[in-house]
Design a protein around this nucleic acid. Sequence first.
DNA 1: AAGGAACTCAACCGCCGACAA
DNA 2: GTTGTCGGCGGTTGAGTTCCT
Length: 248
Amino acid sequence: MVARMGWGIPEQGWRKGPWTPEEDKLLSEYVSLHGEGRWSSVSRFAGLNRTGKSCRLRWVNYLRPGLKRGQITPEEEGIIIELHGIWGNKWSTIARYLPGRTDNEIKNYWRTHFKKKEKSSQKQEKRKAQTLKQEGQHHHQQQLEAGDIKIVNSIDDAKMHEAPEKQEIYFMYSTLEDQRLPVMSQDVASWADSVVEDYYGLWGGLWNLDDHPQGQIAHTSNCKKLSMQNEATTCSFGGDSKNIYSGL
DNA sequence: AAGGAACTCAACCGCCGACAA
DNA sequence: GTTGTCGGCGGTTGAGTTCCT
């Protein structure tokens, strides 16, 4: 498909920026005569040097009759919160339940009123996670010193340490932030789930998953690709099969 | 009073799916 | 099956406004 900036003739120098009262008048008159739809012809026949897309947006978000102006009411806010909980960022779906409000309006409202709150609560979460992380590292250090856990460099190394009478805990090493994730060789699937849980729960706020070298680790689908091979555990990270003991 | 920071919101952008030719 | 157009959506931008120091 050819890249285009708007609907209609792409080469044409379309007008951009704020709409003038004259343009609004032309658009309103045209739509009231011919109805909504066929937006590319609106721009052509209404004498507007705007893309069809721009015309549609202006009509839907600003000129359409029945649009409410002014503050979102507490009732509307309640509906937005509730519906966002169900549908997430499906602004057009949410807007259908708020007559007179546009998806753009709701989207902007959410961003300005709730992203703020999210930010401040994220800060709190981060602080909490930092404390947990420190406590966790301290606990791991104690376990290491007591010999309850071992950090290994290879499968062979891991096998050498494996004591049949007790369940060994190994750690997978992340190249990021000196993190170690606990790995139980017995139950790979539950490990995968616990990793995901830990990842989101304890460290989710601290790690940028996208920046992680094997970012897919946080995705259950990938973690489920774990398999047992001769008592060694392998984990598939986005196509690359890696041994969980490697990278130490 | 001034100027920088934070906020608001209209408009734009890029992408996707549906549909017709 | 392929290509082009249109409608629609969510994310982002940036100019104008308000707030804060």
